[in-house]
Amino acid sequence: MTGKADVLILTSSYGGGHLQASRALMEGLQALAPDMSYAIVNFMAEVSPLANRLVEVSYRRAVIHAPFLWRQFYHLTSRYNNPTSGWQCQLNRLLLFWARSLLALYQPRVVVSTFPVPAGVMGELKRRYLMSLPLVTIITDQTVHNQWLHPATDLYLVGSEYVRRQLVYRGIEPERIAVTGIPISPAFAARRAPLSTRSELGLDPHLPVVLVMTGAEGMLPQAPKLCRHLACLPSPRQVVVISGRNTSLRTKVKAEVDGCPWPVLVLGFVNNVEAWMAAADVLVGKAGGLSTSEALARELPMVIIRPIPGQEEANTRFLTRAGAARRARDVHEAVAMTEEILQDPEIARAMRRSAAGIARPSAAYEAAAMVLALSKESYGSTLVAN
């Protein structure tokens, strides 16, 4: 999309969650202010499509094949990040040209970032008095990596009181923080009946549903083995696997579950995950900020296996401490935990209650309302210097 936009949303395709949050926010904005214009831009792809693709591939390989290296990178970049000096300032300076080009093209009234890099670059523009627009940063995990932070940011929208406290601890003024929840599709704000949803999706309404989610990019290499064990246990169930855009993983899962006694439905990327979650009794998979926020909105018990070091490990700690999830060390433990939740209604009810206590199903609307309030107050010029 090109042309003027009242609200410019800058994001990234790394991992999928940042883009999903952007789309959810746009849905909320369009519902609350349909007469205004909005645009979502993959910031790094605008800078260099080739470099963006290389980083995507490198990130995927690192978290799957060398998670210990990703953990080191994640913690080092957070520990030593300073938005006004060092390597972060150099990176921001390199990207100022593209940031100003986007502002000139879209002429927004407010800029929202759902990824750390554009948040820092736009903050640097404002720090240098090259623009004076309100800047909003939406943190898409239940933790704070320091790269999200910049002193020129006007408003941080966060997923929980836990993240708000982390920001205050890092010196962010409380009035610059709002707990809205991580934006998820407004469809999650509407309740669904599990049995009728199963029928609608072509599932057996009377069989328990185990939902396995591998993330948008299918970054759960244990999925084939996991699904085979889940579908071969004695007690009745049906397994639904959402393998994202990873067609190779989808093929491997199908081959692995062939001949299992219980039905297994293997899907690729879906646009109605809110329906599949409504139909499920338990979710087994990764701990992305978006997918876990969606599961919370559906009050769906979670079993988390192999969280990505850094952000997903932090998400897992948040969820397990709240009682909404359990962390499994391996496939066998994940299967045992899933079976326990399916067989013990009291455990399932307790986890659902815990999820309900921290869920924010209307996060997209709440975040959109905060952004719109800033846009109405915005009288800043996009560019004030050459």
Rank of each mutant, 00 (worst) to 15 (best):
I347K: 15
P67W: 10
Q166D: 09
M122P: 01
N92Q: 14
A189K: 12
K4Q: 13
V163P: 01
F97I: 06
R164T: 00
D258V: 04
G259M: 02
S354E: 05
E175H: 11
V239I: 06
T292Y: 10
R60A: 15
L149M: 06
Y169K: 14
R127Q: 11
L32I: 07
L133A: 12
R109V: 00
K225F: 03
V239S: 01
E346F: 10
Q222P: 00
S354F: 00
S160K: 07
L91S: 01
L211K: 04
A39D: 06
R165Q: 15
A322R: 10
V239N: 00
L372Q: 05
N52I: 00
C89S: 10
G16C: 07
A231G: 08
F188M: 07
L265I: 14
V284W: 13
E377M: 14
R228S: 01
V117Q: 07
R245M: 11
A367R: 00
L201R: 08
A33T: 00
L69N: 01
R360A: 13
G218Y: 13
N271L: 12
L155G: 13
Q20E: 15
G323L: 08
T338W: 07
M219K: 02
L207S: 13
G244M: 06
V331Y: 03
E377K: 15
A356E: 00
L283H: 02
V331G: 02
R198N: 07
W148V: 05
A287F: 08
P83L: 03
T214D: 02
S378H: 09
R198S: 13
F269K: 14
E217Y: 14
V47P: 05
N246Q: 11
E274I: 03
A359Q: 04
Y14V: 15
S37W: 05
R198E: 06
R165S: 14
A190S: 14
L211F: 08
V210L: 09
V273N: 11
R128N: 12
A336I: 00
L300K: 08
S199Q: 14
L149N: 04
A62K: 00
P174H: 03
H229Q: 15
R349Y: 05
S243K: 05
I139S: 12
S243T: 10
